[in-house]
Write a protein that binds this DNA or RNA. Sequence first.
DNA 1: TTCGGTGCAAAAGATTTGCATATGT
DNA 2: ACATATGCAAATCTTTTGCACCGAA
Lengths: 151, 151
Amino acid sequence: MTHDIEQKALARYLEAHGLKQTRQREVILEAFLEAGGHLTGEDLYQLIREEYPKIGYTTVYRTLKLFVEAEIAEERRFDDGVARYEIEHKHHDHLVCLLCGKIFEFESSVIEQAQREVADGLGFVIHRHRHELYGHCEECRQKKDDPAPGD
Amino acid sequence: MTHDIEQKALARYLEAHGLKQTRQREVILEAFLEAGGHLTGEDLYQLIREEYPKIGYTTVYRTLKLFVEAEIAEERRFDDGVARYEIEHKHHDHLVCLLCGKIFEFESSVIEQAQREVADGLGFVIHRHRHELYGHCEECRQKKDDPAPGD
DNA sequence: TTCGGTGCAAAAGATTTGCATATGT
DNA sequence: ACATATGCAAATCTTTTGCACCGAA
């Protein structure tokens, strides 16, 4: 079994909440984990369709929300306003290429520290944050012979 | 005239692009600047309606996009996925209170510097970014006797 | 057997578009 | 006059909901 941890997490969640283990939930979880993240509901629906054509649009959406409840997935929205889901793992931020759409992940303890200082200064308690850098990735820049903006 | 700078910026943009100065654009700009930012299309439409009832929904949306083109406004989306517009001014990031919805602004050169380092390390050129902290503001915490999450 | 789950179709909310009409330039 | 702008209604797009039927426990 490939994604043992998440599958067990889901089973545990369902159990604990009197919900049912269904074929759809299995299939959606498997496809979601397999694809590896940053998918929209639509993306996932299309993926699953291929191997399980009678699955409903609605079920995919509902199941994604379920995964968020079960803390298997996180919901994010980048600049297009569409909800995307990714596997919940260690906290990180994102770099999005404006040309090819690829999404990179990063983390920076310097930034985290600075965030806490900002929040403290305003009497604010941070629960979560969102931090996205948009630009051009190396590969795309090379393709287009696209220099840094200031050059 | 209260918002001279933006009004001139708009006039310049319209001129330069062969577009027209209309009563609606005036009214919308005035209302937008007056309100002071972080408004949705709906918000602004409702505001303007009071003093100019026959204005169309569509016109407000189109005009807001125009302001973005003219670099008078910026479009943002916080976690609810709805587009909000704010007056374009010095770069800054946001702190959003999850309880009362108030939006604070901040900037941190430490964070900006760290962003550049992250991007350099990945061969990425940043064009823009988005950085939002979500939490509870001081006022709301006092009202609810809500301590820091770790306490 | 009993709830919860699923799938369809329809609803909803935000935003955009088509089009005839109105209006700056 | 002519091109752009406006306002309405209708279309889109994404996501949610109502409801009859299905299926896991």
